[in-house]
Structures are given as C-alpha cells and as structure tokens.
Design a protein around this nucleic acid. Sequence first.
DNA 1: TGTTTAATTGGTCAAATGATCAACTACGGC
DNA 2: GCCGTAGTTGATCATTTGACCAATTAAACA
Lengths: 207, 207
Amino acid sequence: MSDGPDAMVRRRRLAPEARREQIVDAAVCYFAEVGLSGTTRDLAKRAGITQALLYQYFRSKADLLEAVFARVYLDRMSPHWPALITDRSRPLRERMLTFYAEYSGAIFSYEWLRIFMAAGLAGEALNRRYLDHVRDLLLAPLLEEIRFAARHNAQPEMEDLWNLHGGIIYLGIRRHIYHLPTPDDVMPVIERAIDRFLAGFAIGERA
Amino acid sequence: MSDGPDAMVRRRRLAPEARREQIVDAAVCYFAEVGLSGTTRDLAKRAGITQALLYQYFRSKADLLEAVFARVYLDRMSPHWPALITDRSRPLRERMLTFYAEYSGAIFSYEWLRIFMAAGLAGEALNRRYLDHVRDLLLAPLLEEIRFAARHNAQPEMEDLWNLHGGIIYLGIRRHIYHLPTPDDVMPVIERAIDRFLAGFAIGERA
DNA sequence: TGTTTAATTGGTCAAATGATCAACTACGGC
DNA sequence: GCCGTAGTTGATCATTTGACCAATTAAACA
C-alpha cells in the first residue's frame, strides 16, 4: 500500500458555497444512477466526504433531494424558447427544428431523464409542474403557430402535439432509461418526425 | 371497539397455489404504487398476511420481485400480433389500428407502466429483453410491411417506427407515471398519429 | 506566529428492514 | 373425534440507514 503524495486525501476545507455545489453535483450523479432511494452513506463516500457532513449543508435527505431537483430542472428551460416559437418572421418548420434541437440538447442527458423519471414514479409534484410549464409556455404557443399555419386545413389538437413531443422524448427514454442503442445524432429522426407532422396538416406543401 | 362477526379476520389457511397468487397480486399492486424499494412489511400488511409468510413462498425479496415481473410481463404480449401485422389480406392501416388498439389496451395499465419504468431505472435486464422482443417480433415485421406498401416512395427506417411507437407509449407515460390528464379514449389520437405516419410515406393516398 | 472560527470527522443512537425459527393452529385423512 | 402435516404467526437477529453531537483541525486574521 504505497501512499503516493497524490494519494494523500487529507481533509480539505472548502468554502461553504463550493462544498455545497460539490455535494449537489455528486448527488445528481449518484441518485440518477441508483435511484432516489440511494443512501446518504454511499453518496458521501462517492463525494469523498463523510456522511455527517451532508447534514451540515442539508437538514435532511429530502432537503438534499430538493436541491438535486432544483439543480436538474433549473435553467434547463431556456427563457427564449417561447419567443423563438412565436417568431413568425421565420418559417414554422425552421422554428420547430431549432426548438427541438435545443430542447433535446438540453434534456437528453443521463442525469436529467433518470431523475425526472424517478421523481415521476415517486409522485413528486415537480413533474406535473414542469410538464404544465412545457404545455403552457411551449406546446400551447406552438399549437397556436401550427394552427395559424394550417388555418385553411385540418386543425391539430393539443394531443397531437403531445404525440409529436412524446415520440421525440422517447428517444431519450430508450437511450438513458432502457439503455438501448439509439442514433448518435437524433436530429435527422426528429427532423423527419416534424416534417411528417407538418405534412399531416398540409403545412409547407408549397411555402 | 366492537368486533363484529365480519370484522373477525382469523387466520385463514389457503391452498399454496392460491396464497402465492394472492401474494403476487398484492405485490404487483404495491410495488407499482410505491416503487421497487417498498418494504416487505408494508406489502404483507396490505396483503393481509404476516411478513414472515412471504418467505414461505419466496426465498428473498428479489425472488418475489422476479415473480412480480413475470406476472406483469407474461401474457401481455399476444402471440397473434406478428400474424396480424403481416396479414396482407387486410389493409395496412387497418392492421396497424387493430394492433395498436390491442397493444395499448394491453400495456396502458397503472401496474404495467410503472413497474416497467421502475425496472428500467433499476437496470433490470428484463426491459431490454422485452423491448428487443418488441423490436424483433413486432416493429421489424411492421417496418417490412410499411416498406412494402411504400415500395415506390420514400422508405421509413426503424427509428421512424420507434418514433411512432414512442409517441403512442408517451400517452401511457403521461397518464400513469406523471399523473397528467389524458383522453379517456386514446384511439382517436393513435389513429391520427398512424394516419400522419402513413401519409408521410405516401401510403393510403388512393388505396 | 498565536488565536479564533467554523468546517469536518468519528462515533453513536433509534428506527427500519431483510431474513430466520420455534411455536401455534387450521385443515385433510383415519 | 383425533392426529399429523403443513400453512401461519410472533418474536428476534443482524444490518442498514437517517440523523445527531462532541471532538478535531484546517483556514482566516491579527
């Protein structure tokens, strides 16, 4: 057992902010991997600190999980998406492609998808709040845009948009929840799905 | 505290088969609701038996979970689906509608979706096996059928079919994992999705 | 460099949990 | 009606786990 100079993991005192960040980072990674019922001890071991220290920064495990949720969800929702979606100076197809490129880039991560799904199973209210947000601020405006573009044809309903959305999200679920092989680049698949969707409402036939 | 004659819950001896069935039934319901990390004590309480009795029928909790998985998955996959999908005496659209009506009827259940998702998060190999099954026995033949029907047009890829499939499954996920409101009757949504899909490959324009 | 502050730790407690076992009792056979 | 088999139970053990606390020590400051 040679303790090289680098192997020395002496106790390091960090600024509270930095330490807290480090704990939340490790917690996001840990709980995404093992599920929300992972133990504080294992988490501490992985974070390279003692279990007791967790309780210096969080009152309880539930409190820590709150921080994990906040970290995972916050700032994944770009504030410029609503404006992007409703910007009629750009073709609708282009807006949708840009939006879903950015959206999938934001949430197709191992941590996000697994923690989101685990939170859903655990009955966390956060899921519903997040998806209400998606519906009200993203899909509802998008529906309006599509309806406007298809104003002389069949009109899509919100459920049709959820269907498009779900087909795209399912790519991430297959990859990160089920560990199934998926294309490295998801955009071609998403692009074809969007084109089929728009064509289904006779949009973009000649424009 | 009156112990009415009906309130008497004396120990009842059941045939081993029946008891085992009863335990698995209760376990499916229980673990679907609270997740795979639910406790054997709570499960026993809900099943109306003592915790020790569980270990008369199952060597361990993992063993019991195996039985739960088997119960949930077995016989959800109708053996006539492959034949239905490849039956070219019927129009492709009709086959797809029939298949997805039966498929969604089979798996859009609280227990199935939640246990399947929990198993995915827990890294159970079962998920991958099941989805390989779906791909090889259902989606691959279906892809062949669609390609044949679209043989003079653009050809879909397997990823396009996963996209269609995912959009449909997402309905169940929204309902049972996220507890979001969804249409009581899912078939109209599914029907429109299938029609958009087929139209995207110029199928059914005149046939 | 000595002092102070608070970040960090090892140790510990109480409750929860998977698993086991001897004892009890319901049911079928005589 | 009695008996033996086996289904069922309460009690218990060994770990695990969330949470806490006094003691320790690294960093900031004079």
